[in-house]
Each structure stands twice: as structure tokens, then as C-alpha cells.
Design a protein around this nucleic acid. Structure first.
Length: 487
RNA sequence: GGCCCCAUCGUCCAGUGGUCCAGGACACCGGACUUUCGAUCCGGCAACCGGGGUUCGACUCCCCGUGGGGUCACCA
């Protein structure tokens, strides 16, 4: 039975009906890794068959988001390829043709029920505790009747004639056998009355025509996979391998949704999550290296990936862990690279500042940054004096008197200091604390607030060095004035 | 509700019949370092959903419960 080894072809098939979704990236990551590992092809196909909701904006956002992540596709609407077009809205004739073939063979039939009729009947059935789904009213229509209505121009859809008995099964690569009784399967709409295909038809036709070997998609599709199997059968095609990835979850374990957690890739990018960190994090959702290492590159994942190691339980998307991981990546790079990436996006509005100063500042915040977008907030005091409450100058267990003395003494020793380096500053201030018998921490806190206008800041002396003597002295003087009437 | 999928610390993962009174990571709580925050290092807390089988032996296999999730559209 050994089938000829086929080149692996996978696709990610987003529907451009909103912001690029993190779940799409999740599935796309596994597609990409699998394709790269096997030397296969990764295809991007735009499933824009919902004419109401699909937008070009959404499509380009999706493309931009995937580029940002670095998940490059070999074929797609923007780069072309031998199996195009890759936008379903441009393939309508293909679907119509295939629907026609099904009509001819009797595997499908025309249904003239209107949405309103369907809704009404559905509701009636439901209130009587009956089955959901289509009641198959038009399934029994005679050919003559159907033709009559068709010629009269009655709007209609094409439905799949699902066998009433038996069962349909498939083997999910990560879940094993799944089977459903055909009686449970609805006579699915294949072609809508606007002439566009539904997901079911378009998906099956395209996956076959594009020679997709492995369909990787989210778990929510499991229940419609039997319909797809039936469709492949009706066409006389061999179905691809199916792999249903678990659904990413909110904290309450429901399917991840923007109501609860951020789902837009645009948001992750804006916040300053690094693509490699986000990918690493997504990989951790359901897959592991097999050793106890959690920080790894895309390349490493490609090297050791296997479907056997993907879990089927739905993972909760934990932003706290993403933050930690992002911080790991931030700390692992050089300050130069970090700054480059902050400027490239940009994540800062300080684009006109001198490069050496920016680099020094970046080095100071690097180890306390979790997201690149925090840069300005963390470094604002370097560029401008921030308003602050003079009471902040007072260290715990100290009073205004201490603040005034500390400031006066501090200004005194610093005024005479010429070598304005962190080491020199450290030595001088340390010496001051000792000669006066002051608690070092208390003295430092006064200076910190005076110089950075904040109780929490980057290390004091490095910060003062970057700020320069003039600016520091001016800030100390201002603090001194503000401390005048501190109790 | 019908059908389907899933089930190890709060969360993410390791564990593929014995080496498990269950291991790592995040978070949390302590401690160390330290001029604040952070980073770093050290330590701690904390789980095999329940019940039946199978087996000499089950976290691991099977069944039934229970729980969670998904799906039941001319949306994907």
C-alpha cells in the first residue's frame, strides 16, 4: 500500500474578517515548522468567501503580521505560485463547476428554502425539542420540480446529500480515530445563493486542487471534518491527513476571544513583544522540546519538531509567562540590537536624540524591560524633568530636615567633582554618607528622587553619568528649593 | 440538550506499566545580593478529577461517571 512519498504541502487559511488573530499565527507556526522540516511547501490562502465581512484591509494586516513574525510562505496571493489564485474570491468559477459536478452525480441537490423559512422551521423544531439542522425539505424535490423553480429564477443554495445511515470516520494525526454517525451530519450548504461557496466546499476543493497533504487547523473544526470527508468521497478524491490543534483558551478556559484577552497580533506587536518570543511562547502551547528547556529558537523547533509531541488539551494563554519570555529575549540581545529594534518600529518617540546617549540609556533599562513599548515610560526622566511630589524626596524614617541637609551636602560635594563618572560619583556620595553617618539608602533615595523625579529608577550613578553634571546640578537645585517647606 | 474533543501543581509543559511519596518553567511566598525597581542566585508552596476494571504492578491501558471545551448558520 506504500503510497508514493508526496512532498509535504500545508496551508494556513485565514479569513480576512478582522484583525489578524493570534490563533492563526499559532496554527501557522506549526504549518511553517512542519513544512520547513520536511522541505515541503507552506501556502497562504485567503478564505474570503464571506462577502459581507471580508475586507482587503484585514487581508493586508494578516500578511503584514505574518511577515512580522517571520513565517514566510512559499505561495500566496502576494507572491503567486503554481496553484493560484490564492484568494478564494477569485476562484468562484472553480467552486461553481465542482458544485455542478456534484449536482450531476446526485451527491448534492438544490435547496430553495429561504433563510427566513429555515429559521422559522428551525425554531419550531427546537421548541418541540427536535433536532437542529436542516429538515431536508428540498432533498426530496423531483428533478422536474427543481428545474422548474430554477428556471423561474428562484434563489437557491446547493446542499450536500449526506447519507442517512452509516458512519463517517477519519484519523486525526494527533488524536487518533474520530467517527460520527451520518445521521448526525447536516445536509451542509456548499454553494450559497450569492454563488459563493461555503467554507466546506471551498476548503475541500482548494485543498485538493492545491495538493495540500496535511490540513492543520483548530480543534473547532473537528465536528465538520466528517462533512469534508464525505465531500472528498463524493468527488472521488483521497482526503489529506487531518491535524486538529487544541484551541487557545482564555483564563476561564473558554475559546480565546478578544472580549477577555488580546487576540490581535497587531496588539502584540504594538506592545513590543518580539516575534521570536511570541513564536517561542506559542510553540510552548501544546508542544515541548522533550527536554526541560523552554527558551528555544524557531530553527531549533524545526530541527526537533514532531507531531507526536503535540498535546491535545486546550492551553490557557498566560500573558504573564509571555512577559517573562519576552524579557528573556530582551536581556539576551546586545544593547545595540535592542536599541535598533526599539527605533525600527519605532517604540519610542525619542528619534532625534543622540545615538550614544540613547544607547547608554537602553543599556540601563534593558534588564528591567518586558515589552519594548515600555521604553519611553521607563526612560522619560532622562529627557525631561517630571513633576513630582516633594514629599517623595523624604526617605522612610526620615524628615524634611534630613532631606535639606542631604541635598545641601550632596550639592556641595558634587559641585567640586570634575570626573563625572559613575565610579567617581559612587565614591564621593558613599564617602559623604560615611562622614555624616547617614544611612546610605536614605541619602541615595533623596538624590534619586531629586535627579530622576521618581522613587523607582535606573541605577543612580549610571543615571547621573548619562544625565551629565549640569543637568544633575540643576535638578538638585530644584529639589532643594522644593524641599524648603517640607515638614 | 444531541454529537464530538479533552483531562498531571493556579498556569504552561515533562512523564508513553515499575527508576514517581511525580520533574522543569511562569506566577506566588521567603532568603541572598543590592542605592530604589528590576535582574541574578538559593529555597519554599503546589497536581496525577472520581469509581471500576486489566496487570505481579498503574499518572501511564480499557470502561463508566464527573468536569471543561467545541460544534450544531446561505460565518469561517
Amino acid at each position: 500500500m506504500a503510497a508514493a512519498p508526496r512532498r509535504v504541502r500545508v496551508r494556513v487559511a485565514p479569513s480576512p474578517t478582522g484583525p489578524p488573530h493570534v490563533g492563526t499565527a499559532y496554527v501557522g507556526l506549526f504549518d511553517y515548522v512542519f513544512a520547513r522540516q520536511t522541505g515541503g511547501d507552506f501556502v497562504l490562502r485567503i478564505e474570503d468567501t464571506d462577502r459581507e465581512r471580508s475586507t482587503r484591509q484585514s487581508e493586508s494586516d494578516i500578511i503584514a503580521a505574518f511577515r512580522w513574525l517571520g513565517l514566510a510562505w512559499d505561495e500566496g496571493p502576494d507572491v503567486g505560485g503554481p496553484f493560484g489564485p490564492y484568494r478564494q474570491s477569485e476562484r468562484s468559477h472553480i467552486y461553481r463547476q465542482h458544485a455542478e459536478a456534484l449536482l450531476q452525480s446526485g451527491a448534492a441537490y438544490r435547496c430553495f428554502c429561504t433563510p427566513q423559512e429555515l429559521a422559522a422551521r428551525r425554531q419550531a423544531r427546537r421548541s418541540q425539542g427536535g433536532q437542529a439542522g436542516y429538515d431536508r425539505l428540498c432533498r426530496g424535490l423531483s428533478e422536474q420540480e427543481a428545474r422548474q423553480r430554477l428556471e423561474a429564477g428562484a434563489p437557491h443554495v446547493v446542499r450536500l446529500r449526506v447519507p442517512l445511515e452509516g458512519e463517517t470516520a477519519f484519523d486525526d494525526l494527533v488524536r487518533g480515530a474520530v467517527s460520527v454517525h451520518n445521521a448526525q451530519i447536516d445536509d451542509q450548504v456548499l454553494l450559497k445563493s450569492d454563488g459563493y461557496p461555503t467554507y466546506h466546499l471551498a476548503n475541500v476543493v482548494d485543498d485538493h486542487l492545491m495538493e495540500i497533504t496535511h490540513v492543520v487547523r483548530a480543534e473547532e473544526w473537528i465536528s465538520s471534518t466528517p462533512k469534508h470527508i464525505l465531500l472528498y468521497k463524493a468527488f472521488g478524491w483521497a482526503p489529506p491527513v487531518f491535524i486538529h490543534m487544541p484551541l487557545l483558551r482564555n483564563k476561564d478556559r473558554s475559546k480565546i476571544s478578544k472580549r477577555r484577552d488580546p487576540t490581535s497580533l497587531l496588539w502584540y506587536r504594538e506592545q513590543g513583544y518580539l516575534p521570536e518570543a511570541l513564536l517561542n511562547f506559542l510553540a510552548l502551547m501544546g508542544w515541548s522540546l522533550g527536554e526541560e528547556r523552554e527558551v528555544f529558537s524557531l530553527e531549533e523547533m524545526i530541527e526537533s519538531f514532531s507531531w507526536e509531541r503535540v498535546k491535545t488539551g486546550g492551553p490557557v494563554f498566560d500573558l504573564q509567562k509571555l512577559d517573562w519570555l519576552n524579557g528573556e529575549y530582551i536581556r539576551a540581545m546586545s544593547a545595540e540590537e535592542l536599541l535598533e529594534r526599539i527605533i525600527a518600529e519605532p517604540y519610542t518617540r525619542r528619534l532625534d536624540e543622540p545615538a550614544d546617549g540613547m544607547l547608554a540609556i537602553t543599556a540601563l533599562v534593558q534588564e528591567r524591560m518586558k515589552r519594548l513599548a515600555e521604553f519611553d515610560e521607563l526612560t522619560g526622566f532622562f529627557f525631561e524633568r517630571k513633576p513630582y511630589d516633594p514629599a517623595d524626596l523624604v526617605p522612610s524614617k526620615q524628615d524634611g530636615d534630613f532631606v535639606r541637609q542631604a541635598l545641601a551636602a550632596g550639592r556641595g560635594v558634587l559641585e567640586g567633582l570634575d570626573a563625572w563618572s559613575a565610579e567617581a560619583l559612587d565614591a564621593v556620595v558613599r564617602g559623604l554618607a560615611e562622614t555624616r553617618g547617614w544611612k546610605r539608602g536614605a541619602l541615595y533615595m533623596v538624590l534619586r528622587v531629586a535627579v530622576t523625579c521618581r522613587r523607582v529608577s535606573t541605577p543612580l550613578f549610571e543615571t547621573m553619568e548619562v544625565l551629565g553634571k549640569d543637568e544633575c546640578m540643576a535638578r538638585l537645585a530644584a529639589a532643594d528649593a522644593a524641599a524648603a517647606d517640607l515638614p
